[in-house]
């Protein structure tokens, strides 16, 4: 039994390393992204093996799902930038030499083979061999040093006993949620700030354009969205609520709701509401603002910022998680759409 599990672990780790290697060695970007999403899903399995179902859920939803969607839409945009005439009738323009990394002949040949077909492969040159061994020496040496260090470490219990001792006053029944929203709520607040900041940064770079042109959606996607949207919303709300006593919580719920928004924008790019930029700004900030505002109570009443009164801890945590979920979902959709609304500059 033990040996079988050990074998599973070894195979899983080897698989992860192999997929990561193939991903990073790839010369076809689309392939690299697909391998990366596979990598994320394999990681989720690894997290289950490490008794971390919450993280597995987050990895699948955020690490593989949202990151994957962002990567794919980025590839679409890059393709569009490098070959703006794609989809035009008639002969395709000559392949743009800068479209490939350093004038990679292979990629240009591929471009030429698919004139105007709309599936120009985004590729990049293989890395030149010069410096290969020094890079291998650096990273290999680092890996060995790290492993040697890890091998010397003892098996401490970490902070598990401390968390267990304080669960009864945390306001929730799930250890990770207690850590995230109570014991280390400051980390979570700053993490919300980080999500917001990514959105602000992307907005500062320019206005959003329409999503890149894509083939007219067939009947499948809108139909599927009609079915999936309610399911996603129910799942999101369930995850949010479940977080207090079981795997789940604001970030997973936000990711699921964000994914629903992304699906909707994919299926019907022109029916997405273009909200008033003022409302949008307030929407993406509201989660963190609400969190901080409620936390100020502890600053004045003592003992410190972000203290929840014992008997109010559960409702406060639920309110904060709801706000965080909505802001996260909104920011994720905004990041997918791209830059800021043109109306903001008016």
């Amino acid at each position: 039994m033990n040996a079988a599990l050990l074998a599973f672990d070894v195979v899983l780790l080897a698989g992860l390393l192999g997929v990561a290697w193939r991903c990073l060695a790839s010369t076809d970007l689309f392939r690299a992204v697909v391998l990366f999403i596979t990598f994320g899903l394999l990681l989720a399995i690894a997290w289950v093996r490490l008794e971390a179902p919450d993280i597995a859920l987050a990895e699948a939803a955020i690490g593989a799902g949202i990151t994957g969607a962002l990567l794919l839409v980025t590839l679409e945009r890059l393709k569009h930038i490098m070959n703006p005439h794609r989809g035009d009738a008639g002969p395709s323009p000559p392949p743009d030499p800068v479209a490939s990394d350093t004038g990679n002949a292979d990629a240009e040949a591929r471009d030429a083979r698919d004139p105007g077909a709309g599936n120009v492969a985004l590729s990049c040159a293989p890395t030149p061999a010069r410096g290969r061994w020094s890079a291998v020496a650096v990273s290999g040496g680092l890996a060995l040093l790290l492993m040697a260090t890890l091998a010397t470490q003892d098996h401490g219990p970490g902070l598990q006993p401390a968390v267990a001792a304080h669960m009864d006053v945390s306001g929730v029944d799930h250890g990770i949620t207690a850590v995230l929203l109570n014991f280390r709520a400051w980390d979570t607040l700053l993490e919300l700030a980080m999500v917001l900041l990514a959105g602000l940064g992307a907005w500062s770079l320019g206005r959003h354009d329409a999503l890149p042109a894509r083939p007219a959606p067939g009947p499948v996607l809108p139909g599927a969205v009609r079915l999936l949207l309610p399911v996603a919303i129910v799942t999101g709300v369930y995850l949010l609520w479940a977080g207090s006593h079981a795997p789940g919580g604001a970030f997973q719920a936000g990711a699921v709701l964000g994914a629903a928004g992304i699906l909707m924008s994919l299926a019907r790019p022109h029916s997405l509401p273009d909200p008033d930029p003022r409302l949008l700004r307030i929407g993406v900030t509201a989660g963190a603002l609400l969190f901080l505002a409620l936390g100020l109570w502890g600053l004045f009443a003592g003992p410190a910022l972000l203290t929840w009164p014992r008997n109010l801890a559960y409702p406060l945590i639920l309110i904060i998680e709801t706000g965080a979920t909505l802001s996260i979902a909104l920011t994720l959709v905004a990041l997918f759409v791209g830059g800021r609304s043109p109306r903001e500059d008016a």
């Binding site: 902070l159 850590v179 280390r184 993490e191």
Partner: peptide
């Protein structure tokens, strides 16, 4: 049982 603090840190890290 697994340490919830390290797991929570990972969740934060992923986001």
């Amino acid at each position: 049982p697994p340490d919830p603090v390290a797991q929570a840190l990972t969740l934060t890290g992923i986001v």
